[in-house]
Design a protein around this nucleic acid. Structure first.
Lengths: 119, 119
DNA sequence: GCAATACTTAGCCACATGGCTAACTATTCG
DNA sequence: CGAATAGTTAGCCATGTGGCTAAGTATTGC
């Protein structure tokens, strides 16, 4: 049994960044594309109708929030998805589900055991 | 077998809103709290160090993006979580995982069957 | 070595976001 | 009825976001 006890949401600042990064369709598309393997900034950018500098901002946002890693070799910057960071979203959802389930259990008990008082 | 074919991300506009709504710690905390059951705006707001009008904006954002429903009876507005909408996040993650797995399969084949050419 | 390539930097702009105060409306309680 | 309660509306403000153009730098190919 692990750490289900956090009174405050764990890693809140990280989640801010991760959700913010995923809130933009261009960035989600990049994440999706990188799911199929690494790609250069230029190759990625070709798929979008915005200028390179604008596109670069998205790349920086994704990197700043840990969703991708990038590395420059020669004049080419290659981007790689960091799948582990998306797990943070998974974790948040799981935690949320846990909260629901606890509630469901409580309701269950309410039906099963009439000793409990009504809200 | 369902619809795995979408060339473009399904429900992109919805995801924009959902991820945006979840990108704020106050709003995530509200979602979490509502996981334990409905609550009035005032009760929810008590947990946060911001003014009521500011808090109301978050409530409106959550409602506008479908994460909660709210209803006013008398002078009290009650908020309820819409769990079904959070499933959209789940779906996006699942789709993303599908992309990875396809890639993994490809790499697998590359190792298993040397006929395939290198990238 | 010169030109093309692949970003990068700098700076500007419009609009969205999240916070605030002040003042207002609508219910409910005594 | 009148006061307290629970939101709501309006308007202001600083900062953040996503887009652009123009110009610069560093590699690479001929």
């Amino acid at each position: 049994m692990a750490n289900y006890s956090a009174a405050v949401e764990p890693a809140s600042a990280d989640l801010d960044g991760i959700f913010t990064a995923l809130a933009d369709p261009t960035r989600r598309a990049v994440v999706r594309r990188l799911g199929t393997g690494p790609a250069s900034v230029g190759d990625l950018a070709d798929a979008f109708p915005i200028t390179l500098p604008s596109f670069m901002k998205h790349v920086r946002t994704l990197e700043a929030n840990g969703l991708i890693r990038t590395e420059k070799r020669g004049r080419v910057r290659t981007c790689v998805l960091r799948r582990d960071r998306l797990a943070a979203v998974d974790d948040w959802l799981a935690e949320q589900r846990l909260v629901w389930e606890q509630r469901t259990d409580r309701l269950e008990r309410l039906v099963t055991d009439p000793k409990e008082e009504r809200p």
